[in-house]
Amino acid sequence: MKLNGMMPAVALACALAMAAGQAHGMIGKPSTGSGEWGSNAYAEWSKLALDDKDFMRKQEQLVRRTIAEKAPEMFKEVILAIAMVESSLHQFDKDGNPTRSKVRGGHTWGVMRISDQPWARYPFIDYERIKWDARYNIESGILIFLDKWIRAGQMKDKYPGLAKVSRIQLAIQLYYGLVPLQPGVDRWWYSRLVIRTTRRNAP
């Protein structure tokens, strides 16, 4: 995918239509079972972490496979990079507990660091399930990114000051959250990091 500049309008419209079709109905589908790291309770995860020396590596394999299966083609590389930056591809720590980060007003959870802040919630997401269902967490993150992609297009149309910021960079930054303008602060550091990670991962 192009990280600099915009895709041709017709190609972009087709890609978004495909993305919407691919994303429709993802959230809410049951995971396929413990072998797919999706339907275990906390206690089972903890036991599995203690019993399986490859616990962390298997998580990473699941994340890569789920993104490859679920993410729209034009966003696969970026979504994988977001997962790497946010959680190093881990839904659980070495003890089997859900990974999380403390943020103002709540936490962000799992592979895609889904925020449970009251103002950041989406009505279609189960905010308990994102903690223990790795596949569901990833699928939720994909849908959130698609929402940010749409918002990025709307913002670029509305605010001329964003003309020099590519739509993909703006969408990535919106996934993290816009940083207020402050002297000496790079408000685009997160999107720059994700883009660098995407490029490092490129074959």
Rank of each mutant, 00 (worst) to 15 (best):
A120E: 11
W188M: 03
A9E: 02
L143A: 04
L89W: 06
L174P: 00
R199T: 00
N201W: 00
E36S: 07
D147S: 11
P123Q: 05
A13G: 03
P203L: 12
P118A: 12
M1Q: 04
E128V: 14
E86W: 13
V165W: 15
F55G: 05
E77Q: 01
L174Q: 04
K76H: 09
G35F: 07
V63F: 01
A71D: 12
M18A: 15
S46K: 02
L146G: 07
K158M: 03
A9K: 00
E86C: 07
G21Y: 02
A23E: 02
Y136N: 11
Y159M: 08
D95F: 15
W189T: 12
A13F: 08
G177T: 05
S88C: 08
L170T: 04
S39I: 09
G35N: 06
I67P: 09
Q117G: 06
Y136W: 09
V10F: 10
L146P: 11
T108V: 12
S34C: 14
M1F: 11
I125W: 10
I172G: 04
P203K: 05
I82F: 14
A49K: 14
S87G: 02
E73C: 05
G5P: 11
I144L: 07
Q182E: 11
T197F: 00
P183N: 13
S88Q: 07
E86Q: 11
K58A: 05
W188S: 13
A17T: 12
I125H: 12
V85G: 02
R121L: 03
D186Q: 09
V165Y: 11
S46M: 15
I172E: 02
R104C: 15
M26Q: 06
A49E: 02
V78D: 01
N137R: 13
E69F: 05
S191N: 13
M112Q: 00
V111D: 05
L193K: 04
D116Y: 09
I82T: 15
W188N: 08
R100C: 10
R199S: 14
T108D: 12
D186A: 06
Q91M: 13
A19F: 03
Y42C: 11
S46W: 05
S88V: 10
G33F: 03
A134K: 01
W132R: 10
L193Y: 10
A134H: 13
G177W: 02
L3A: 05
D186Y: 02
I150C: 13
E69S: 09
Y175I: 12
A13T: 09
S101F: 09
R196F: 00
A120N: 07
L174H: 00
G161Y: 12
R196I: 08
S166N: 11
E69R: 14
E77P: 10
N40R: 15
P30I: 07
P118N: 08
D126M: 01
E36P: 04
E60H: 06
Q182C: 07
D51N: 08
P98M: 10
I172R: 01
R135S: 13
K94P: 15
Q59H: 05
A120W: 14
L16P: 03
R192W: 06
I172K: 06
P8C: 09
A152D: 00
R65E: 09
M155K: 01
R192I: 04
F124C: 03
Y42Q: 05
G105W: 13
M56T: 06
I144R: 07
A13S: 15
E60N: 05
V63T: 01
V63N: 00
L181W: 14
